[in-house]
Write a protein that binds this DNA or RNA. Structure first.
Length: 580
DNA sequence: GCCGTTTTCGGCCCGACTGTTTTCAGTCG
């Protein structure tokens, strides 16, 4: 799939044009094209082959031609042309806060700055300050931006962002005269990683609330402290994270929340739509001339634009506005729909908790079941269970279940898919289980696709855990042809997992969309190993919502009887089929 | 470069902030 490659090229063309001073709408068009390609669940090659490039909104004649050229020749003449005379390293300067195309162009032209080191030298020897429009403060800000860049990660995991935001929001609720408080930005949209942490509050006296905010005990630096906006750097562990707060009047809360939640592309589409109708939309409301039509609630703003409220997770300009206008938005999966967790470890393998402890926590979450899926014998580093230990665990769970009412522990396993695609336990043992998750933990480059397909064909397997194996902060994942795995799951009527652990979130939103389009159900499991792990479900649900999954797409919205009953029925069918 | 039951040319989201200016450009979200 070349979607990302081509998106990257368009992105760099946009950067190069910007640095060459060709700002404006051409640059925007390339950036938009890049985003569309990245968001596209379909393989751009297939779309091009079927002659459908022209019908993708945002891809016109020009971009379509360049895409075809790249697919056919592996090259894009426009890219070479745009990069002519520009060192590649120059484009990296655009990532520095406060540096845009104009300034980078000027620095390159007048001072011969080519990269970050060149910029540092130009700051140090004073030549930068000599540029027109460049004063002491700008130079100083750039110096600080360079320092900050070395200290803070570009994006943080949604989990880390949520923990910080939850804490700061709780703290802000104690501010004098504060009204509603909410996370905004990509955190509210539940993106798998988050840039800055954005928080919105309302209240009569913005300055007082912001002063309270900048006095947060974890704040190591205050970047801004005004009447409507505050910005601090908060230290968590060894990292520093920027948290921005905006305070608006209560009557503007909805419009401001809509605006600060984004995404930018969603906002732009909405504003264009408003304009077509003679309206104007800003963070202060939806206006007709000077008349404010809506601003208090997000719902009001959407309503005067002729559509129902759009869930934040959908706000990416991926067709949600068009659907909303036709009143055809899907009813997304909700946290309350989840009846159990389908991937949980205990102390028997590498978890921290006993069976009783994890079941107790699950009950507190309001679940009616969990599936205990400890590792199998080959995963020695995780104390994988031998046959006898799994048999013992099965008996332990059965005995435990007899003591319970209104809750059930499902007997499961995260059984390893071995190098030859066979499973780490014999079928007879797997047949005693309620829920079998198959997974790869070794041989990431060895026939992964074939092994997964073979596992999916086993009648006892219900789902494949973390099907790409990526770890967001650490590694890309297995060498796997996921399209074939999705097709295999569809063929065998099996599910695929959405692993809700924050560093996995695997399948990701694009692959979830693909799976849904093929009719493949998704099992959401937290893969929990410790007490806080079950709560990761919120991220799984968030990503599922970003992929537009509905209740019916997700396996663990079923009750335990239905879930296990289906297994039993399938096994029965399998047996009958095998008997001539 | 994209787009169009107003348009095939002339539009293309909106406002705030900052720092540099003496009326505005650049950048950001």
């Amino acid at each position: 799939m070349k979607n990302r490659e081509i998106a990257e090229l368009f992105e760099r063309i946009a950067d190069a044009l910007e640095v060459k001073g060709e700002t404006g709408f051409k640059v925007v068009a390339y950036r938009k094209g890049a985003r569309i390609l990245q968001d596209m669940a379909e393989d751009v090659e297939a779309v091009a082959r079927e002659g459908r490039l022209g019908s993708v909104p945002g891809i016109g004649e020009g971009l379509a031609k360049k895409i075809r050229e790249y697919l056919e020749t592996g090259k894009m003449a426009k890219f070479a042309e745009a990069m002519k005379g520009l060192p590649e390293s120059l484009l990296g300067l655009l990532e520095i806060q406060g540096l845009g195309g104009k300034t980078v162009h000027l620095m390159h032209e007048k001072l011969g700055v080519k990269d970050i080191d060149g910029l540092k030298r130009a700051i140090a020897d004073g030549s930068l300050a000599g540029l027109p429009g460049m004063g002491d403060k700008k130079v100083d800000n750039l110096r600080r931006a360079l320092e900050a860049r070395e200290r803070t990660a570009e994006r943080v995991s949604i989990c880390e962002a949520a923990v910080i935001a939850d804490e700061v929001i709780a703290y802000l609720r104690k501010a004098p005269g504060v009204g509603r408080v909410s996370a905004a930005g990509s955190l509210r949209r539940m993106k798998e990683t988050v840039g800055d942490i954005d928080i919105l509050a309302c209240g009569k006296d913005g300055s007082k609330i912001i002063r309270h905010f900048t006095r947060h005990p974890g704040a190591v630096r205050v970047l801004a402290e005004g009447g409507t906006k505050g910005s601090v750097v908060i230290r968590t562990g060894d990292a520093e994270r920027q948290v921005d707060l905006r305070v608006v009047a209560e009557r503007e809360y909805g419009a401001a929340l809509l605006y600060f939640t984004g995404s930018k592309a969603h906002n732009i589409k909405l504003r264009g739509l408003a304009k077509e109708r003679g309206l104007k939309i800003s963070e202060y409301g939806v206006f007709k001339g000077d008349k404010r039509l809506a601003s208090r609630e997000e719902e009001d703003c959407y309503r005067v634009l002729g559509m129902p409220w759009i869930p934040p997770e959908m706000r990416e300009d991926r067709g949600e506005i068009e659907l909303a206008l036709e009143n055809r938005l899907p009813r997304l999966l909700e946290a309350a729909d989840i009846k159990g967790d389908l991937h949980v470890h205990t102390r028997a393998s590498d978890g921290d908790l006993s069976l009783g402890e994890v079941a107790g926590l699950a009950r507190k979450m309001g679940y009616s079941y969990i599936a205990i899926c400890d590792h199998s014998r080959s995963v020695t580093y995780a104390r994988g269970l031998e046959v006898e230990r799994l048999a013992a665990e099965i008996e332990e769970i059965e005995a435990f279940n007899r003591t319970l009412r209104g809750f059930r522990v499902l007997k499961g396993s995260e059984v390893d898919i071995l190098a030859d695609g066979s499973l780490d336990f014999p079928d007879k043992l797997l047949g005693r289980l309620d829920f079998v998750v198959a997974a790869i933990h070794s041989g990431f480059k060895k026939n992964v696709t074939e092994r997964m397909l073979k596992a999916l064909a086993n009648p006892h397997v219900r789902t494949i855990a973390h099907p790409t194996g990526r770890l967001i902060s650490r590694r890309g994942g297995y060498e796997v042809d996921l399209d074939r795995v999705i097709d295999g799951a569809a063929r065998h009527g099996k599910a695929l997992e959405l692993n809700a652990y924050f560093d996995r979130l695997d399948l990701d939103e694009l692959n979830l969309k693909k799976a849904k389009s093929k009719g493949v159900r998704i099992s959401i499991g937290t893969d929990t190993h410790f007490a806080d792990g079950l709560a990761m479900m919120r991220f799984g649900v968030g990503i599922a919502r970003r992929a537009w999954l509905e209740k019916g797409d997700v396996l663990n919205t079923l009750g335990a009887d239905e879930l296990v009953g289906r297994t039993a029925i399938r096994k029965e069918r399998g047996k009958r089929a095998r008997r001539p």
